[in-house]
């Protein structure tokens, strides 16, 4: 019997940025009106894109969580004991091509059941050198159809399984347990920044002051209304879990760190399970935690 590895399991987590308007604003609202997320001052427009890694298109807000999703644990599993691959810890986990949570104000799915599209995974490490890349269509039978034309069944299959209030999940993963205190602390830090900025050239820093004032105003509302969505969503998560298939993957492993050949054909079925949540309406961030399972070829 072969003792070749069966699967590579990559566990990942970290904070991503998502500059997303929120209901009841239209999904293409650029600045924020009626929801609880806004673009302030001279910040770029809200664009819905999920940034798993820092990007100049989505500058991080001050005093937010550290930005970036990384591989935390990698191991081969097979017949025997799992074999850790510590070299992969710290590799970046990214979704490319400007992915969005796509429900379009409930036109495609109910909130909490939306898919992420496109779903183009890229795991990358420079030392050891490694790239794992797969761009998976929502509907393998209709890879060229945009999400807004796809059957709801397909969207729901790749979509989240509803909104869930899980403060324990969030607390364990992020260390955040007291969301109200976190808001109070953030506001205090921003007020200090604003005070410092007030002493500088008024004209030059007018837009920056507007950003700080806007953030402070929204945090103040959250603190004064702790049952409001601004704080409630910090404990809310969406769970995803679906097979990845329908397109060929590419793997570049010149250092042979993977210890085998991963299945990369279009019919190869990978599996991903993760949750997104702990939404930080002020920092426009959310936490991601999950695992990707990739089979090895049997040869």
């Amino acid at each position: 019997m072969s003792d070749a590895p069966v699967s590579l399991i990559l566990e990942f987590d970290g904070w991503c940025m998502i500059r997303q308007p929120t209901d009841p604003d239209p999904y293409d609202e650029r600045r924020g009106v009626s929801g609880y997320t806004f673009a302030f001052g001279d910040e770029p427009d809200l664009n819905r894109v999920i940034y798993m890694q820092p990007s100049p298109d989505s500058p991080a807000r001050s005093h937010g969580p550290p930005h970036g999703v990384f591989i935390r644990k990698a191991q081969q599993v097979g017949k025997g004991d799992p074999r850790p691959i510590p070299e992969l810890e710290g590799a970046t986990f990214d979704l490319l091509d400007e992915p969005v949570l796509e429900n379009r104000n409930w036109a495609l799915t109910l909130p909490g059941y939306e898919p992420i599209t496109p779903f183009h995974i890229r795991i990358e490490s420079s030392s050891p050198s490694l790239v794992i890349d797969r761009n998976v269509p929502l509907d393998p039978d209709k890879p060229d159809l945009p999400a807004w034309k796809l059957d709801e069944d397909v969207l729901v299959e790749k979509g989240a399984r509803g909104l869930a209030l899980e403060p324990e999940t969030v607390g364990r993963a992020t260390g955040l347990w007291d969301f109200l205190q976190a808001a109070v602390d953030r506001r205090a830090a921003l007020e200090k920044d604003l005070k410092a900025l007030e002493k500088k050239n008024k004209k030059k820093h007018e837009a920056k002051r507007a950003i700080l004032r806007g953030r402070i105003a929204e945090l103040t509302y959250a603190i004064e209304h702790p049952k409001d969505r601004r704080l409630l969503v910090r404990a809310v998560i969406e769970r995803f879990g679906f097979p990845l298939t329908g397109s060929a993957a590419s793997v570049d492993d010149p250092d042979g760190v993977l210890g085998g050949t991963l299945a990369t054909s279009a019919s190869a079925t990978w599996r991903i399970d993760f949750w997104m949540g702990a939404w930080d309406a002020d920092a426009l961030s959310c936490f991601v935690e999950g695992a990707l399972s990739i089979p090895y070829t049997s040869s």
Partner: peptide, 21 residues
Amino acid sequence: KTHEEGGVSWAQLEAMRPWRG
């Protein structure tokens, strides 16, 4: 809604943001 529209300062835009809401 935006500075590019002209005739509105950053401070005015931030004052107007909650009013619109």
